[in-house]
Nucleic acid binder design. Structure first.
Lengths: 153, 153
DNA sequence: ACTATATAGTACGATATGATACTAAAGGCA
DNA sequence: TGCCTTTAGTATCATATCGTACTATATAGT
């Protein structure tokens, strides 16, 4: 494996890290004070894949430790954006339901981003963005698949 | 602006967030206990662009608040991986110099990643990775340029 | 059924990150 | 020169994130 491979991977992952940082900062600035991208992401996920997920399912979906998800869900619950109810099929577990307030919060957040997306979309052609998707998906799948193989300790 | 534009941006930024999370976790697991990607990134930056940068320059390069950079540099300094010396040209400021230990730390970290990159490179064709670079750069530049225009408060 | 193991969630503590507010030095301008 | 504003860095504090350890429940093996 030539060094250029490592260089290329570093370069891609470095760009990814900067993009994530900038996008997160921009988005967070649009959310009501006290809310983070993590809160929105959970609400958005519950809409996309349907609510009634368990905390552990959510933690896996976002690749965060379950303690982090407990914390994030606690914030959402205190704000009445989700409700946690016992899981009738498993006494250890719970299910997370989004409330009407939660749905409204998500929709307002998305609407609030409209002008930002519009400004950015004027700077990056739609084809450029669309062309990124397959490569990013392939990269994400590779990293995800590799996660199961810790390799050398 | 059609909704599909917002959807596309969400999709790209979501993939970016997951990739960053997975890559960071993988990398951090290879670093000596107590060190984070942020520490490595600073060392790597000092090698790439040359040391003698000021803390503020570094904060800007990584798009983090200067207080965060102060903290990160503190960790590097305690571990003797960098030295902070006064800036003779500006009494308010300092300059950051990488030590021999710092150089060695960086090289070992990169070497330690070798097997990981090799495994991942087997899963994602080099062309796929290379093809991502221009689009990611364009996206990063757009986000960076937009940062100066807060838009609607 | 009984025991051992695995799993879901949480409590607690450590630390990274980031906002606010401060100090000290520079720079601008009368 | 003296004053005002800007800038570099840090101290302090709030909180997000995550590791460890614990409890309660479920599952497997006998």
């Amino acid at each position: 494996m030539p060094d250029t491979t490592t260089d290329l991977w570093f370069r891609v992952l470095n760009e990814v890290a900067i993009i994530d940082q900038l996008a997160r900062a921009l988005f967070e600035a649009r959310l009501p004070s006290g809310f983070l991208v993590s809160h929105f992401s959970v609400l958005n996920h519950l809409i996309r894949v349907g609510d009634g997920r368990t905390p552990l399912e959510l933690a896996r979906a976002f690749q965060v430790p379950k303690t982090t998800m407990t914390h994030t869900l606690g914030g959402l619950e205190r704000a009445h954006l989700v409700e946690m109810r016992p899981n009738p099929e498993d006494g250890r577990s719970k299910r997370v339901w989004i409330t009407e307030e939660g749905r409204a919060f998500r929709e307002e957040a998305i609407a609030g981003l409209g002008p930002d997306v519009a400004r950015l979309a004027a700077l990056v052609p739609e084809e450029t963005m669309a062309a990124l998707v397959p490569g990013l998906e392939a990269l994400r799948r590779a990293l995800d698949a590799d996660r199961d193989r810790p390799g050398p300790p």
